[in-house]
Every structure is written in C-alpha cells, then in structure tokens.
Amino acid sequence: MSRESDVEAQQSHGSSACSQPHGSVTQSQGSSSQSQGISSSSTSTMPNSSQSSHSSSGTLSSLETVSTQELYSIPEDQEPEDQEPEEPTPAPWARLWALQDGFANLECVNDNYWFGRDKSCEYCFDEPLLKRTDKYRTYSKKHFRIFREVGPKNSYIAYIEDHSGNGTFVNTELVGKGKRRPLNNNSEIALSLSRNKVFVFFDLTVDDQSVYPKALRDEYIMSKTLGSGACGEVKLAFERKTCKKVAIKIISKRKFAIGSAREADPALNVETEIEILKKLNHPCIIKIKNFFDAEDYYIVLELMEGGELFDKVVGNKRLKEATCKLYFYQMLLAVQYLHENGIIHRDLKPENVLLSSQEEDCLIKITDFGHSKILGETSLMRTLCGTPTYLAPEVLVSVGTAGYNRAVDCWSLGVILFICLSGYPPFSEHRTQVSLKDQITSGKYNFIPEVWAEVSEKALDLVKKLLVVDPKARFTTEEALRHPWLQDEDMKRKFQDLLSEENESTALPQVL
C-alpha cells in the first residue's frame, strides 16, 4: 500500500538533515546492470571481512566470479597478432551492500547512478522477487541517484539526491524531493519508509565518522582530508542543518603536550582565546566558526575552494607581477588587521594563504593565525623552527619566545613576496656552502639577476625593505602599504570589485 501522500506532506515541511535544493538533472540513458558494476546475484546478508577486503582492492568479489566451465583457453599460436591488451577495470570509489532480497550489490565505478523502476536507470528495480513485494509499487520510476562531484583539492564528494514520490531516507532522515545531501561511510539508505532499509553505503575513500566526538558529529558530517601540516590535519565537512561546506582543523593534544602547556602557563585558556579569535572579522582572514574541545581540538573554519598559494608557486613557478601585487596587498591588509588586534601570526607561508577560486584574479585569505593562542608560545615555536624557511632572523637566534615582536610577520611576508615574484625561495638548504640558518640570520638571500630583470624596481625595493635583518629597521605593514609599488588604483579597484562580488555589503578597509 502506498504512503505517498503521508511522505509528500513530510517532504513539504523539509528536513533537518544536511540537504539543499538542487537544479534539474539530465537523465542518464539506460545500460545493462552488469556493465555498471552490479553483481549478477542479489543478497540479503552483509559481507564478511574477506569479501570486503577483496573488493576494496579493486579485484572481483566472490559475488562477481564466473564459473571456469564457461571459459576456455586460447593457445598462444592462435592469439590474433593485432589484439590489444584489455584496459584494467577501474577501482570502485564506493560500494552499496544490499540489505534485502531482490536488490543486488553495487560497485560504484562510474560517477553517476540512477536507481528506480524505469529501465533507463543504471540500477533498475526489475528483479522478479522484488516485483512480488508489497513495497515495489511505492518505488518511483526514478527514485534517487548517487553521484560524486569534484571538491576541494581535486578530491571527490559523494551525494545522494531524492527524486521520489514516497521519499528517500539516509539514516532515517528524509532527504526531500529535489534535494541532495552528502553521503558518508556506513550510511543506511531506506526507500519509501524510513524503516525500509535497502542499502548500506560504503565510501571507500573516507574514514568512519565514529572516531570523532559526538558533539562534533551532531553538527557536522566529516568527509575527506584536505591537507595536513606540522600543526594538524584539515578535513572537509558539512553543516548538517545547511549542507554548507566547512573546513575542520584537528590539532592533536598529545603531539603538542597541550596539557603540560596549560600547567606551565595557567593563564592559557584555550576556550577564552578561541572566543576572541571567533570575533575577528576581516575579508582577508579565514573566519573561525566553531570550536570543540575533546581528546583533540577541532576548529571549524570557513572553507576556501581555490587551494593554497603554495600550489601556484611550487615547482619554480612565478606569478605575474600584477597578480603578485593583488595578492600581496590583501596579505598586508590581513596581517595589519591581526597586528591591530594584538595577534602575531608567526607562521606566514604560502600554505597559509588560501585562494577563493581558481581564477588568477581572486580574493585571498590568511589562515592559521591563532596557533600560539591554542598551542602555547613554546610549543608552537619548537614546531616552526623545524622548517625555518620563512622564519625571521630574530626568531632563530632567540631562546624560547623572548626578543621578537610583530616584525617577524613582515619578514615572512618579504619571503613570500620574493617567491611569488621570482619563482624560487630566497633562502634554501640546497645552497650547501652556507647553512639555512646562517643565510637567514645574515640576510644573504639568493639573488639571480636574469630572473629579477623581469621584475620592476619598485617591487624589488619593497622586497629589500622587508628582508632587513634588524627588526627595528624592517618595514611595518603600514609602511609597506604606503610603498610606491602598491599605489596602484587599478589594483585596488579590482580588489574592491572582487569584494563586491563576494558580498555587496563588504567595504574596502581604510588604508593610510
């Protein structure tokens, strides 16, 4: 008996699950189920560990084997000379395990699969056993689809999209007709009724959600790893209520002995410091949205989908001078704002400069500016000194954290500008005749005249004003913003236009 009217009423009120309206889709043409990776026989039982391990490696599972009696060998002398080797079968990115008779397991190899009674669906509900069930008529011709799209860092995100009359449910929550939600590992998919569980979705590319604290899981769906560094790992996640993407940084307390840091400095109150950081608001710094204190720290951040500045300059790639100017102007505005709010970044580098898009002209935002507030000064500097390429001379020669101030950030900005303009770092371990530390503390950077011949004198002058060993003589952010190279009204107008595109209400910060 159909429950279409009941569920449609529920759909009209929406769902609290991570779902959002989605535009129309072009329906895929039908194809045989076997060619799409559906096993030839149905099963109602969950797999054992041996079955799972075989399939996850990209080899055929026991459900897909063919009797050897149906095959015969071709003698080598009868092999056609022009026969080309077969292409290897792509490894599946996800697996659906059937929970009921009449449904088959599915190895997801393609990027898009339609499910329903219509014969054009890649996964067609046409098993005779299924057709005899009382629920068969409640399934729509095109009930739902599972697909994946390219996300940040060229990774993939799996989604389920509801197109049914009676509802598609993920972990008992209604997706909603015309809406989608991301699928995470071990999600249970039910059709027409929330208790009519048909599939379990296994994402073969992500970790299980159960490793994360419950308070975090209640608000966010964790997904793929976006990156990792000395101070922690960053994962893509989704807000459950809105389906908006965020980035979540995970900082290990054990790695940084944060408990010991608190004992050594009783004034170090991470929760208080995070609340201060959350109040920071500038178009060129990453917004801190939320914070969870569990076995590790979880910092929920605004997501930038254009990648890191590092990706644009790695491998001796240089940027156009006009692009360097647009990016560097924004970096200076961001660091100036942090300094005005009493925050020294201490870890400025291309990896911590994020881009809003893949376009050459785009907004940038500074991230990882609050680590000293979370990890403690000593722990952070011990970590950073392991990779000193961007560290100021006074940091390398000081004991502990004494003896330096916000000028350290201006040195790091000078190193970043040098790399963007030239395509190579000013200080490098590859210069074996002088140690990296000695290069930095003496201010002897690697200047290649033929490379810098293409760079304007004004740009080079600003680099020199920032890479000054004496912090008292080094340019401040205010002085850098007043430098002739940055007195470019076309560049500032472009920045204002980019801000307006992102948010019509965002105004250009005042600069002296």
Results as ranks from 00 to 15, higher is better:
S120I: 11
N184Q: 14
R117N: 00
Y113G: 01
E81P: 10
D118M: 04
E4D: 06
N196V: 04
T168I: 02
P92S: 15
Q100C: 12
S28Y: 06
A190V: 06
G165C: 07
G14I: 14
C243F: 11
P90K: 06
S40Y: 02
E84V: 07
T59W: 09
E149H: 03
I160G: 04
G227T: 01
P152A: 02
M222G: 12
C108F: 05
E127W: 11
A158I: 15
R3I: 04
S73Y: 14
D203L: 00
H13W: 10
L216C: 05
V234T: 07
R180H: 14
L130G: 06
S164N: 04
G58F: 12
Q20M: 15
A94Y: 00
R180W: 14
I248G: 01
Q100I: 15
K241H: 01
L60C: 13
Q83Y: 03
R254I: 05
N186E: 03
R132M: 10
S31N: 08
H22E: 07
R117V: 01
S40N: 11
P92V: 03
E239G: 07
M46E: 15
E70C: 07
S67D: 10
S192T: 01
S24Y: 09
A104L: 13
V25I: 09
K241Q: 06
I160Y: 02
N48Y: 09
G151M: 00
T133N: 06
N186A: 06
I160D: 01
V206I: 15
S40T: 08
S140M: 00
K244H: 09
K135V: 14
R262S: 06
E173S: 08
A94Q: 00
Y220V: 07
K224A: 05
N112L: 14
D203N: 08
Y123C: 13
S140I: 09
L183C: 11
C121K: 01
T172Y: 13
E271V: 13
T43Y: 12
Y113H: 10
Q29C: 11
G151V: 15
G176Q: 07
T133Q: 08
E8K: 08
E70P: 13
P80L: 10
N110E: 10
S24P: 07
Y136H: 04
G178T: 02
I221E: 00
D207N: 10
T68E: 08
S55D: 15
A94G: 10
F147Y: 02
Q69Y: 06
I157W: 15
M46I: 05
K255L: 02
K244R: 13
D111W: 14
Y220K: 03
N166G: 05
A215G: 01
C243R: 03
S187F: 09
A257N: 00
W97I: 03
Q36R: 11
G232D: 02
K244P: 03
S187I: 08
S61K: 02
S33T: 07
K135S: 07
E127I: 13
S19N: 04
D134W: 14
R95K: 15
T138N: 03
G227Y: 00
S39F: 13
S55E: 13
S15M: 07
A104V: 04
S49A: 09
D111Q: 04
G229P: 00
S120V: 09
S44A: 11
A257W: 04
I146V: 11
C231A: 05
R132Y: 10
R254G: 03
C108Y: 03
E8P: 05
T172G: 03
E107P: 14
N185C: 14
S35M: 08
V270D: 07
S57P: 03
E107A: 14
E76A: 14
K177E: 06
F169L: 12
F115M: 11
N185Y: 06
F144Y: 11
E173N: 07
G232S: 05
S39Q: 11
P90R: 12
R3S: 08
K179S: 10
K241W: 06
Y156W: 12
K142R: 09
N185F: 13
T65V: 06
P128I: 01
G178W: 12
T225W: 05
Q100A: 12
L60T: 06
F115S: 02
T59L: 03
I251W: 03
L130S: 04
D6W: 12
F201N: 00
S12N: 10
S223C: 01
D218G: 07
N154M: 12
E79R: 13
S24F: 11
K249A: 01
S67L: 04
A261H: 00
F199M: 14
P213D: 02
L268Y: 10
D134P: 12
L96T: 04
S44G: 07
V198H: 01
D82L: 13
T43P: 03
A267K: 13
D203I: 09
S41V: 10
S120P: 14
F199T: 01
P152R: 09
A237S: 07
P47L: 12
M46P: 10
E161Y: 13
S35E: 11
G227F: 00
A104D: 10
K142Y: 12
R181P: 02
G227V: 01
D134F: 13
V66A: 12
N269I: 08
R3Y: 05
I146K: 00
D77W: 07
S44W: 06
E233L: 10
S140D: 00
Q36Y: 02
L204C: 03
L193W: 01
A267P: 11
P128H: 07
P21F: 07
Q83I: 12
D111I: 11
S41N: 10
S19I: 01
A98W: 03
P85W: 08
L99Y: 12
K197Q: 02
I74Q: 12
N269C: 09
E188C: 01
T225Q: 07
R217V: 01
Y212C: 08
I248A: 02
S5L: 08
L99I: 09
C18E: 08
N154F: 12
N110Q: 05
V109S: 03
D111S: 11
V206A: 03
K131W: 09
K253L: 05
I157D: 07
S31I: 08
V211L: 03
T26M: 15
N171H: 08
P75K: 03
S16H: 04
D218K: 04
V270K: 15
S44E: 10
I221R: 03
E70V: 02
N171S: 13
I250K: 13
G227P: 00
F147W: 03
K245T: 07
H22C: 12
P92N: 14
G14Y: 05
E64D: 03
L236F: 13
F125Q: 03
A237L: 04
L96G: 03
E4S: 06
K141H: 14
A17H: 14
S120L: 13
G37W: 09
E188N: 08
Y113V: 11
I189V: 01
S73D: 13
S57F: 13
I38G: 07
K241A: 02
E173G: 15
K249I: 01
S53V: 15
S120N: 08
E263W: 06
D134S: 14
M222Y: 13
S228I: 05
E122F: 14
R262Q: 15
Y159A: 00
S56I: 04
V211P: 06
S19W: 06
S49V: 11
G116E: 01
Q11V: 08
N48C: 11
Y113F: 12
K245L: 13
E173A: 10
Y156K: 05
E233Y: 01
D208L: 12
I74F: 15
K244G: 06
R180P: 01
W97V: 10
K177V: 04
S5D: 09
K135C: 08
Q11P: 07
F169P: 00
F125W: 12
W114T: 07
D203G: 14
A98F: 03
N110F: 14
M222R: 01
T205S: 04
Q209M: 01
G178Y: 03
I160M: 12
E173W: 13
S155Q: 09
S12M: 13
G259D: 08
S5C: 12
E81R: 06
P85L: 06
T89I: 09
Q51E: 14
K241R: 03
Y139F: 11
S42N: 04
K142M: 13
P213I: 15
C121F: 05
Q36H: 15
L60V: 08
S32I: 05
C231Q: 13
E107R: 15
H22I: 12
S210R: 03
Q27A: 05
S61G: 01
E87N: 09
M222I: 07
N48A: 10
R180D: 00
V170D: 01
S33P: 06
C243M: 09
E86A: 09
Q78W: 14
S32F: 13
E122S: 09
T43A: 04
Q20P: 09
P21G: 13
S187A: 04
Y136G: 05
D207W: 00
G116P: 01
T138P: 02
S2K: 06
W93S: 01
F144I: 00
Q209D: 10
C231G: 14
